[in-house]
Amino acid sequence: MNTPATVTVTGATRDFHGSPALRGVDLVLPPGRITGLLGRNGAGKSTLLSLLAGRRRPTSGTIRVDDGDPFTDAATIQRICLVGDGGGDSDTSRVGARIDLLTTLRPSFDPDLAHRLLADFDIAERTRIKSLSRGQRAAVAVTLGLASRCALTLFDESHLGMDAHNRYVFYDALLADYVAHPRTIVVSTHHVDELARVLEDVVVLDVGRVLLHEPRDEVVARGAVVTGPARAVSGLVAGTRTLRTRRLGNTTEAVVYGDGTADVRQRAPAAGVDVTPIGLQDLFVQLTMKEHA
């Protein structure tokens, strides 16, 4: 049985021609969780995933999947699957041939699941990969990634290019197979709100560093939008971490984040202001904008 993997990243840095992509990342991903890896373009998401998958080595620091080095340890590598966005512009293989190949290479690969998912995505297995559209290639990629049933499954913007229907097919399939076959899953995405329902934990990377790593519910609970008369809002949020403030006439809207948010919620009715939840995507945008400011 492929038990879910534990990921431990200790002081990992990675440079490309002297330019740092990751700067001292410390991270522990517990087994059997779905983690969203969020970050702006160039934040280091793909670099981190490539280190976790053993594609590359860190310039310094260590990566461990359970106790193994994913770059060198044979038993560890076969427990990891990194799914890209499909690529394959020049791949002349047929989809069915790729299923056969993975059936041979991966001990945990389930070809029946692959057949079912491809049918759900309406992709014929005799089709050559290069003949598929970008979205269809992405669908093939996530199909093979899910069917690999690896202890650590990494999706790097895999569903980029898929239409909305297929993205929801993917989310449903991801959850269903995760429930049936628990594993550690990391999904890097820019479709944050769409995927939020699937995520259990959230890691936000910003310019190569971990900005936060918390359970999704806690992250969302720590944020709120406070709207009301300017003086009341400014008095209420004073002392609380405010990510953004917008003013329209006498009305102010403030996005707050942190431990003080619960207190703001409690005092809001008395102050005559509204406090509404903030979506994960909005919160992520505000968090990363604030850090750059």
């Binding site: 793909s46 990194l82 890209g84 690529g87 512009d89 020049s90 791949d91 790097d156």
Partner: peptide, 11 residues
């Protein structure tokens, strides 16, 4: 080291 995470192969 392998280049990138999105090489031509679908996985």
């Amino acid at each position: 080291e392998l280049r990138g995470t999105s090489t031509w192969q679908v996985t």
